[in-house]
Write a protein that binds this DNA or RNA. Sequence first.
DNA 1: TTGTAAGCGTTATCAC
DNA 2: GTGATAACGCTTACAA
Lengths: 332, 332
Amino acid sequence: MASSITVHDVAKAAGVSASTVSRALSGNAAVAATTRNRVVEVARQLGYQPNLAARGLITGTTHNIGLVVPDLENPYFASITKSVQSRALASGYSVFIADSDEDTRTELELVHQLSKQVDGLILCSPRMSTSDIAGIAGQTMMVLINREWEGLASVVIDDAEIVRLALEHLHALGHRKVAYVGGPETSWSNQKRWAAIERFAPTFDDLEVSKVGSYAPNFDGGQSAADVVLASGATAAFAYNDLVGLGLLARLNTRGVRVPEDLSVMGIDDVNVATLVSPGLTTVRSPLKKVGRFAVNKLIDLMSPTDRPSSTEDLPVQLVVRQSTSVPPQRR
Amino acid sequence: MASSITVHDVAKAAGVSASTVSRALSGNAAVAATTRNRVVEVARQLGYQPNLAARGLITGTTHNIGLVVPDLENPYFASITKSVQSRALASGYSVFIADSDEDTRTELELVHQLSKQVDGLILCSPRMSTSDIAGIAGQTMMVLINREWEGLASVVIDDAEIVRLALEHLHALGHRKVAYVGGPETSWSNQKRWAAIERFAPTFDDLEVSKVGSYAPNFDGGQSAADVVLASGATAAFAYNDLVGLGLLARLNTRGVRVPEDLSVMGIDDVNVATLVSPGLTTVRSPLKKVGRFAVNKLIDLMSPTDRPSSTEDLPVQLVVRQSTSVPPQRR
DNA sequence: TTGTAAGCGTTATCAC
DNA sequence: GTGATAACGCTTACAA
């Protein structure tokens, strides 16, 4: 709680009333210039810091926001979190962080714990049930990330475009049999991606995309999938995300399968760690930093609507080719 | 801020006074069993959630803590952050997160912004000046991570033991010329590690450890260092942390240097991503999850001292050997 | 332009 | 065991 210098301390020291101090410091009320200067100076000397909780009690606004993510150790969410916090700071907001550890129940608990002390929530929860989301939305201002529901504000990456770019790339390299290594069935993004595959695959000549199981959206999931992918006879694996892609690479390396000569591997997102390996992981970059920024913008706009709503720029995805050779597989 | 059901709403609905509601719900005051049950039931039905800000105003305790880290995208800090939040949740605390983006000024700004709305702070800031730390400590309850200063509470990993284990391992493999790839000069851990090297190196027969520059504590830093390390004639590189180690591996791979046959590489920490590459990175594991947990324990103990202070278990570090061959280098 | 007073949602004190 | 009442630090009518 820090040292307790209150408006009253400042008021006494400056020889004015508490309300004058409040007005002088808030800036937007009518106060004599000389009085204001004196108050401001005294406040500075005393090291006065307003108690935001008390202010929130009366203004009804805390200048705090909450961010709920499934796993902070996942570089995908780490990037989003970082940009959310950075953008929030720029607007004078503090950020409560809540890591649900992929658990939907914990997620709800966290949301409730936070909802009373924030002006709004950013919810990054691929798996929460829609009814739970609706319930929260009724209580608190909210922006969804990578998910859409009714009229709720949301920031979504263009899954269809991601899929289109990837298929286009693989097809251009000569691949005709591609295995999509799916993420959790309940994941909203996973559903969108598979739907996009079913929509776009037929538009490419002779392209066949099969779905390989449902795997955990991480390194282990990719390792588990590798052998099944190999057995499927596909010449390219298209992973649900980069971590799965890296898991594939690791297991393939263990089995002595050459990448990309024997099997090409693509990921999604271009998370920070995707550059760590060699051969690199070809991927479609998701603008994660922008996602976080936009989410905060939308939330702030929701909380205090301005005349011109937050610019509705888009979120471009982008193919990033890293695997050294672009040779089509021999066995087509 | 959520729906505004207050104690008064509950009081009216239950036919009692606001103070009785408060007592019934807090649990520790004397209240008739029947009254309590009725109040609790009504509160549940109405979906009452106490306003923690208001409570904090009078109790002087917010049940919020703040965590300041230099970079959330660094898996080292991501792990600590995750465990801090997890442990805090278990004790009913919410966590403000503050990423300073490695900038000391931002760090101070964040601390000030937070200090009034938290009961205590966990500061993970390898580079903040001691005077700034002292200043904050005078204002707010605080626990330092990987840093020590005067009488301040802190949780530190045993840098000396890390260094000892690493040197012992390398020496046992036959290495006699080792290059330590240093992190930022201003980093507290880096200073401790180098000091430990100077202390322990002479205790191993014929072992010579040279310091190679000061590099950024990340992947890029490692890449930059690789060529200098090679030129140094060392048979093993001991990196400031895993990310630097991974950067070394990547650049060595590019240059066609075989690891570990031509050059062995060790990291520190065993962050999550260290397992992503092959050959794996041999490293000394830092118990990051435990560090976060302990920090919260210490902070809670500081804020509300109990009879038995938080158990003072230690933080064991542990060698993790991953590089496939243990053959000593030919050129000794 | 400034001060006084009321109130935000809680809990603590003190009567009853 | 329970209910008024005051108080936490702040902002904002309303007066002056």
